[in-house]
Structure formats: C-alpha cells, structure tokens
Amino acid sequence: MKWAEFRVHTTQEAIEPVSNVLHESGAAGVAIEDPHDLVQDWGDKFGEMYDLSPDDYPEEGVYVKAYFPMNDSFSATMDLVKDRILQLTQCEINLGQATMEYVEVDDEDWANAWKKYYHPVQVTERVIIVPTWEDYQAQENDIIIELDPGMAFGTGTHPTTILSIRALEQTVEANDRVIDVGTGSGVLALAAWKFGAQTITAYDLDQVAVTSAKENLVLNQADHAIEVKQNNLLEGVQENVADVIVANILAEVIVSFADEAFKVVKPGGSYITSGIITRKKADVIDALESAGFIVDEVTELNDWVAIKARKPV
C-alpha cells in the first residue's frame, strides 16, 4: 500500500491543535520537526540517541507530519484536513505560513519514518519516557513510563508535557485523587500514578485518545489503577473531589472551563494547566484568578507555559 507523508509548515503555537486535527482525521502517526530540538539539551544520558539533521527542519516555525493511507477516500480526506486546519484561525491560533503538501512513501518506509523522532527522554531527575520500540536499561531510582504514541498526541517530548510532568512531581502526594483532562496518550495520568496518586481518572473527548491511553496503561501495568473515560472536559464531575487536576490542552479551552475546575478541585487542592503559548499566559492567569484560584507558580520552556494554581481553603 502507498502512504502519504502529509506536512504542515506552521508555528509552535499551532503544534497541538494541528496535531489533534490530523489525529482526528485518521492519521496513522504524527511527528514534529521543531528546530528547538537541534539545540535542546537532552542531557548526556540520552544525547547519543539523537542523530538529527538540520536539513530536515525549517529555518523558522515547525513541520507537523502525518501519515495517511492513499486509498479511495484519500483526496476527500486531504481536502477535509486542509479545511479543518485553516479553520483553526477562527480560534485565534496563529498558523504561520500554513503551507500543506504531501509526498508518497512505501508501506515499510512510513512504518519507521515517524519513529525516528521519539527516543527515551529524561523529563525530570527521576522520570524517563521510553517508547516501546527502544531498548532502555533502567538505572536505580529511575521512574520509567513506557509509551506507544500511536494515534494519540503526547509522547513526553513536547515542552507542555514536560512542564506538566515536572509540576505533577512537585505536587502529587500519596493517596491523592487526580483528574487528567484531555489525557491524549495517558502520559500525565501515568506520571501521577508513578508519583503515588491513589485514584486517577483520565478524560478525553476523542475516542481514539481514550483507546490509545488504555493501551498505554496496559503497557505500564497500570490499567487496574487508572480509569480512562470519554468525556467533555469536566462535564458531570462532582464538586470538591480532586486533590489535583491537570489539563494540558489549548489555552482557549482552559479559559472556557476555569469555573468548572474550581468547583471540582478540593479546597487547598491544585490545578495544573499547560498547553499555553507565552502570549496567552496572561489570559489564562486572568481566567484562573477570576474563577477564584490563587496562582502559585508559572514555569516556561521554549515559548510554552505551565501554571500551577491553588484553591483557597
């Protein structure tokens, strides 16, 4: 079978929404070519695993690549994907150049092409994200999260995921109840479990993400400990039940349900948000404070922001 490697030239800000469009349109794999990766300090422990060529990367902006089967519905799928990506501007998302093109690749080529972008990544002093196809020998005190990204966005390498995991490590305490909103691959729910949370619920509106997250729970022997459900944000969730809520999603979405998050988190509990491009940091802070939260910490990495807020006792 022939496959198409579909490439979107866009901005850092648009990585997640564009990736979501591609996943929801049936992409069998998504990869990011971000020039930041060429200068990112991955640490001596994993530096030898990265063999990145500058020729594959844009001088500015990023490439988001996805792989689609070239079947009878391919042309219609491409038209729909292009329209949906361009519609993101209605949400005030800067798409940059927004050029879109594709090339044909053979079945064997596509199966391995996107995997070259994902290697073991040390997210914190203890946490290492390891793709299933990598052979990694764990060291003492390592916390390993094994992932098969599949068709769900969230491999552990994106700055928003890294910031979220670091915030969870500082926040989650033994026996906490954690809710992960927009779970994607399930990586943040898995991190919360590794940090000692007792009750974890992960929500995603996309059924593909729900399925992928469940598969990753099995990989980590965590399917007994984490419940994954298809749900629209925090719709229907009881009030004052979560010690920690984490939401790594678009800034506009975080703003839209700040009041609901305030109701669901317990007094004294924490709300960790990420997926926020720097220029939208103030909007999210305003929304959280208007809902009643106290902002405790703001961290940044490569133009992305994570905000840790607290519900007063």
Results as ranks from 00 to 15, higher is better:
residue 104 E to Y: 03
residue 96 G to K: 06
residue 136 Y to S: 07
residue 224 H to K: 14
residue 16 E to P: 00
residue 166 R to I: 01
residue 140 E to D: 15
residue 109 D to L: 11
residue 206 D to Y: 00
residue 178 V to F: 08
residue 132 T to G: 06
residue 248 N to D: 15
residue 108 E to G: 03
residue 170 Q to K: 14
residue 247 A to Q: 13
residue 51 D to M: 10
residue 8 V to R: 01
residue 203 Y to G: 00
residue 33 E to W: 12
residue 276 I to T: 02
residue 302 N to I: 03
residue 181 V to C: 10
residue 206 D to Q: 01
residue 172 V to P: 09
residue 137 Q to D: 15
residue 153 F to Y: 05
residue 108 E to P: 00
residue 248 N to P: 04
residue 304 W to D: 00
residue 243 D to Y: 06
residue 18 V to P: 04
residue 103 V to Q: 13
residue 120 P to M: 00
residue 42 W to R: 13
residue 303 D to A: 14
residue 29 G to W: 04
residue 81 V to F: 12
residue 272 I to C: 01
residue 131 P to Q: 03
residue 158 H to A: 02
residue 245 I to W: 05
residue 242 A to I: 12
residue 97 Q to T: 09
residue 279 R to V: 02
residue 101 E to N: 11
residue 296 D to Q: 15
residue 241 V to D: 12
residue 131 P to S: 06
residue 87 Q to Y: 09
residue 166 R to M: 10
residue 173 E to D: 03
residue 83 D to H: 10
residue 166 R to H: 02
residue 143 I to C: 09
residue 264 V to I: 13
residue 81 V to Y: 08
residue 111 A to P: 00
residue 31 A to H: 03
residue 150 G to M: 04
residue 123 V to N: 01
residue 257 F to N: 07
residue 302 N to Y: 15
residue 125 E to N: 09
residue 45 K to T: 05
residue 5 E to V: 12
residue 278 T to F: 04
residue 90 Q to N: 14
residue 235 E to S: 14
residue 234 L to A: 09
residue 261 A to W: 03
residue 211 T to C: 01
residue 47 G to S: 13
residue 249 I to W: 14
residue 218 V to H: 02
residue 64 V to Y: 07
residue 187 V to A: 06
residue 286 D to N: 14
residue 89 T to H: 06
residue 213 A to S: 02
residue 34 D to T: 03
residue 277 I to L: 07
residue 69 P to V: 12
residue 252 E to G: 15
residue 221 Q to S: 12
residue 192 A to E: 08
residue 307 I to V: 11
residue 249 I to Q: 09
residue 146 E to D: 07
residue 184 G to E: 13
residue 167 A to K: 08
residue 259 D to L: 11
residue 28 A to R: 15
residue 240 N to V: 03
residue 82 K to F: 06
residue 74 F to N: 07
residue 153 F to I: 03
residue 81 V to S: 08
